[in-house]
Nucleic acid binder design. Structure first.
Lengths: 208, 208, 208, 208
DNA sequence: TCGTAACCGAGACGGTACGTCTGGTCTTTTT
DNA sequence: AAAAAGACCAGACGTACCGTCTCGGTTACGA
């Protein structure tokens, strides 16, 4: 959001309506689900929300950041932090949840389109990193750290690289569409990551 | 290209000028490098190439497929098929070449933007799979198959998944920008893939 | 019209459609008659004419000049060049025709609104002088010159001032609305002008 | 002004600030002189006067009536009631004063633009007639009536028509710009009006 | 002296139209 | 028949103001 509310600032003039904000996000989310980001038009959103275009531009500078906020209404809470007792089980659970969201909900389309849009819009890219990638990775990091503290994988394993090995292939198939996001795919990716980790391939000290 | 020239067809009228085609692709490649895909406009390309818009629409149906052709002028030959004698060495060479192209040449920007555009344009997505993903993966497949025939990794390893594990993380960092495509990153990704493969994690028969 | 057609120019590309031009002028004239110049919107005109906005902007730079062309479709031919045999009779006929147009036709409203608009738009003001004031005055000048050649009024009478004395009061009442454009008013204005002219008040040599 | 202050009304609440009113009129007059009526915006005036838009709308219903009040700060007192002893001399003095105001002061622009605006805004038109045309004509009427009582022109002369003959041509040239408001023009118009009047052309009883 | 009603500045609100830009198509003349 | 040129319809863009409204706060009266 682009709200310029500085904490210690005196508030003057009519305050921005939260109701208007909600109406805009709802309309944006609906259009996003129905017709996708490219077909989503500020004019449409305004009309659907029963709102003037200015009320949108006042809050969001690009349609990408608006779409991001609409996307985030539901996305984050759809990504669980499992605790099955084993790294293997946790990673399968995490990846399955992501794949389900990407393939079976209206957020999937928004997900790919937002990543796409972020390639053109640096503001959106920064917001995406901060508001989606950051929180998600923080959550996944805990999964790996629990495995380390359980002794499942070596201390000093490069968690960042392992997270990229987990989600990179999934995004890869989602964005390129060259192969399916099957459950077998999920299981094999996890198996590879866990095997590599247990072998200590992600521990820098060993020769690298 | 979307050229509708059917091989056994009798050609009538003025034949299409190859010079026009080259001028269009050159103009498109230049604009792509200078200002990116989003700012690239059919009108711009036509003006820059000194060509009518019709001459472009006659050959390409969308700006995505035009950009793809401009991109492919140089891309494929920048991706080598190394033969260092070890899987580890080959994979590092392959990934380094890709990262160099993505980060240090004007093709890098086009690469991300084409992937982005393919999320909206099914024609481009299909062309991308067929003309970029297909050839590239065919080449990488040989690397893994050589390793199998050398006995480095088990027979029956799931090469498709291994390729996704190799390039997925790289695309992931390129597209999200949350972490750098450093050489250390490359080495660790390769180490993990090789370790996982040697451990037989990509061989389906084992329990999975 | 703002058509940039230079006579000796080579014409390239698709020529402008006369049909489009007619449709635009017709739509503009209709809206002008129904709702006036201020309520006339380029968007409305385009929609009513079934034409893109660009096709209007390509031809006219401001809505004033467009309205002027729409107005001129009919105006000039509504202003007669009478020949009753006396200056008095001719002037009454001229003024009556103008008053009828101003008060009883849809052009009346356009007339006042165009004069109004010309106060803000220098292009329109210039066009108005050249395309309305010029031709009209040329016609009226003939009336006075015939009176001079008949010997009704002195040679050397200042025709320009006399024309202003004839039409000035009429525009005055039309624009300010402080008194009616009655037939009695017309007759008295003409009587005053003719009396003054016969008295030689418009001949500069006499003392002035 | 559109102040709804009914005399016998009980006044409750905070009274309107005269200082606010002055600030608004000053800002309006300045903008009017600098950029004209069309460019004058309620938002601009409010910003310049350091005042909320509501404080303007509370006092004036349209920008035309606001501009009229700003115009009237100075206009009326710039129009003198001369007494040279002859009709000819008085009329020349009156007309010269008007022409000077129209051509050499910042009120000139406002004058034409207000007449223009009044063509669209009936409230402004009514106010213009009542607050500008009325007082001005009342003053000029005295000039003619003095000439009648001196015996310069016949009793029963149609003063209204004569005033239109005097100012009509002047407004005509000002608004259409087809000819200059020169001093020679002023003298000839006055000469014609006086000659016509003396010849009794404005006396209805004679045949008309 | 205290309430209350109308004022005040600020700025958000739903709208409308602006003039520009681009998309993809169509219509000319020229090659 | 293909080419360059450029007109065509369509419609979104982001901006500017409109006239209204809602805030927090001020001012002066009259109960």
């Amino acid at each position: 959001m682009t709200s310029p509310t500085i904490p210690g600032e005196i508030k003057r003039g009519r305050p921005r309506s939260e109701q208007v904000e909600r109406a805009i996000l709802r309309a944006a989310a609906d259009i996003l689900a129905e017709r996708g980001l490219e077909a989503m038009t500020i004019e449409d959103v305004a009309a659907r929300a029963g709102v003037g275009k200015t009320s949108i531009y006042r809050r969001w500078s690009t349609k990408g950041t608006l779409a991001l906020d609409a996307f985030l209404l539901d996305f984050l809470q759809s990504q669980p932090l499992p605790d099955t007792g084993s790294l293997d089980g946790d990673l399968v659970a995490v990846l399955r949840a992501w794949v389900r969201t990407a393939r079976e909900t209206s957020m999937g389309r928004a997900l790919t389109e937002l990543v796409a849009q972020a390639q053109y819009d640096p503001d959106l890219a920064a917001a995406w990193r901060q508001r989606v990638v950051g929180p998600t990775r923080a959550q996944h990091r805990r999964v790996f750290e629990r495995a380390i503290s359980r002794g499942e994988i070596p201390t000093g394993s490069d968690v960042d690289v392992m997270m990229d090995l987990l989600f990179g292939p999934a995004y890869h198939r989602l964005l390129h569409g060259h192969a399916p996001l099957s459950d077998r795919f999920i299981r094999r990716v996890v198996a590879m990551v866990v095997a590599g980790a247990k072998a200590g391939a992600a521990v820098p000290t060993t020769s690298r």
